[in-house]
Amino acid sequence: MSEPSEFKTLSERIDVLETRLTFQDETIETLNQTITAQWKQIDALTRQIAALNERVQEAEAQAPAPSNERPPHY
């Protein structure tokens, strides 16, 4: 039995939509993986900046106070 042309067109349209949906699903999954990797990297960099900031603050607290003496070359 052959399908009427309307159904064939509808069937083709459904096939095209299914193909597009599959492609979109793959794209969404790829983007999700990319975003997840970026958030992990952002989190690691944020922790690293916090640690460096803490080290700078400790170094500033331990540094001797600046003196008002003239440098020796004067």
Rank of each mutant, 00 (worst) to 15 (best):
A51L: 11
E26R: 11
L52R: 14
A63S: 14
R47K: 15
Q57N: 14
A51N: 06
T46V: 13
E6C: 04
M1C: 03
P71I: 02
I35H: 03
P72M: 03
Y74E: 15
R20L: 11
T9L: 15
Q57D: 15
S2C: 09
P64N: 02
V56G: 03
W39Q: 07
L45E: 15
Q62K: 13
D15W: 07
P66E: 09
R47I: 05
D25M: 08
A44N: 00
A63Y: 09
K40G: 09
T34N: 11
A59S: 12
I35V: 15
A44G: 01
Q33M: 08
Q41V: 03
T27S: 10
L52A: 10
P71D: 06
D43W: 00
P4M: 03
T9V: 12
T36W: 01
R47W: 07
A44K: 12
M1E: 09
A44Y: 04
E6R: 07
Q24I: 03
V56R: 13
S11L: 13
A59Y: 05
E58P: 02
Y74P: 02
F23S: 03
F23N: 08
N68A: 13
P64I: 02
W39M: 02
I49R: 09
L10I: 08
E69D: 14
R47G: 04
N53G: 13
I14H: 09
A51R: 05
I28G: 03
W39F: 07
T22E: 14
Q24L: 12
E3T: 05
Y74K: 11
E12G: 05
R70H: 10
W39G: 00
S67D: 14
A65G: 05
E29Q: 11
E29S: 11
E3G: 01
T22K: 13
I14P: 01
E29Y: 00
P66T: 05
T19D: 11
F7E: 15
K8M: 10
I14T: 11
A51P: 01
I14R: 14
A59T: 13
N53D: 11
T9F: 12
A59L: 15
D43A: 07
A51M: 10
L31H: 08
T46H: 10
Q41H: 00
D43M: 00
Q38D: 02
T34E: 15
T27E: 14
T27Y: 01
E6P: 02
N32P: 00
Q38S: 06
N68P: 00
F23Y: 03
A59C: 12
I14Q: 15
Q62A: 13
R47M: 12
E58V: 04
S5A: 14
E60N: 11
D43I: 02
